[in-house]
Design a protein around this nucleic acid. Structure first.
Length: 308
DNA sequence: ACCCAGGCATTGG
DNA sequence: CCAATGCATGGG
């Protein structure tokens, strides 16, 4: 009835589950400290998958089950495992990140404070790119509102007991929408068009994930930025937040730029290229983790990009 | 009333 | 290769 997954230690379930999710009034990713639930499509049918942390940071363990307590079929078990392993980056070995930043005073402090925070990935490429498109340029609060409206309008529902969960909209559902439909919920014309084209490409099978998985970062970025509305920033976040690449640093990101300039270059301006080079030299194949640990520190108030 | 927020495409030097 | 511009919404 249950499946067990053993993430690599250190693993902080609550921090990981919360990270990069819109924590307020979320209707797709629902979690408490030890629990996480989400609607998924398994074999053409929507099911509510639960994940619970049973272990500790140094001896982590996750249990998975369906809300209706139904047993997993072999196929479902394998899909569910892959899904959860991806969503929580359970196989990332953060001891190596720790070793990488041992000489970097600030990053070492951030690592200590947030030890066990793994990359939280979106389960599908469509969701990762769609959310990044929504988030372009606008505040996270606005992006959260747009996402909620999009989910309520286009996502399937599943009710269990007293709660209703929404699945993130399928590419097929968005592919059928019109620009006007999406403008009506607050997207700009450009974002609406990008969203629909993306959905159409994906539902037409033009982006084969099993093939993209094996591409080099730069090749993958080149593939993704061919799509309307996907620039380098969006592509790089997708490499991190869907493909789980640990060695990406979105140097165009406003917050990350300020961070590097302030703490590693004495406030002097740097070009995107210089920032990328610094990230590569300093954090190497763990640059993605440098990025998310910085954002975690920012959120926790440990550091800031204010001038003072 | 402004201005800005986890950018992008387009246009023009 | 770099600079300027419009875009949608909601919070300050």
């Amino acid at each position: 009835m249950e499946i067990e997954i053993t993430p690599r230690a250190p693993f902080d379930f609550a921090a990981t589950a919360r990270f990069f999710r819109f924590t307020q009034s979320e209707i797709v990713d629902v979690f408490s400290d030890k629990r996480y639930a989400r609607a998924f499509r398994f074999a053409e049918k929507l099911h509510l998958l639960n994940v619970e942390s049973r272990g500790t940071r140094s001896r982590p363990s996750l249990a998975l089950w369906f809300t209706d307590k139904r047993a997993f079929t072999g196929q479902e078990e394998s899909e569910a495992r892959k899904l959860v392993e991806r969503m929580f980056s359970t196989d990332h070995d953060l001891k190596k990140f720790r070793a990488q930043v041992a000489q970097d005073q600030l990053m070492r402090r951030l690592e200590e404070e947030h030890r066990g925070l793994h990359l939280a990935c979106w389960p599908t490429l469509f969701e990762a790119l769609a959310i990044s498109i929504l988030s372009q340029q606008i505040s996270t609060k606005v992006a959260m509102t747009l996402k909620r409206r999009m989910v309520e309008k286009f996502g399937e529902q599943i009710a269990t007991g007293d709660k209703t969960f929404f699945a993130f909209p399928s590419p097929e559902a968005i592919a059928r929408a019109s620009v006007e439909d999406l403008r009506a919920i607050g997207l700009s014309g450009a974002k609406a068009l990008s969203m629909i084209e993306l959905a159409q490409r994906i539902s037409a099978g033009e982006l084969d994930e099993s093939e993209l998985e094996n591409e080099e970062n730069e090749t993958l970025i080149a593939r993704l930025t061919r799509l309307r509305g996907i620039g380098r920033w969006t592509a790089e976040w997708a490499l991190m937040l869907h493909f789980g690449r640990t060695d990406v640093f979105p140097a165009g990101d406003l917050a990350l730029r300020l961070f590097v300039e302030k703490y590693y270059n004495d406030w002097r301006k740097m070009t995107e290229r210089e920032i990328r080079a610094l990230a590569q030299a300093r954090w190497g194949r763990w640059a993605s983790y440098a990025a998310i640990y910085f954002l975690a520190g920012l959120r926790a108030g440990m550091i800031s990009t204010e001038r003072k």
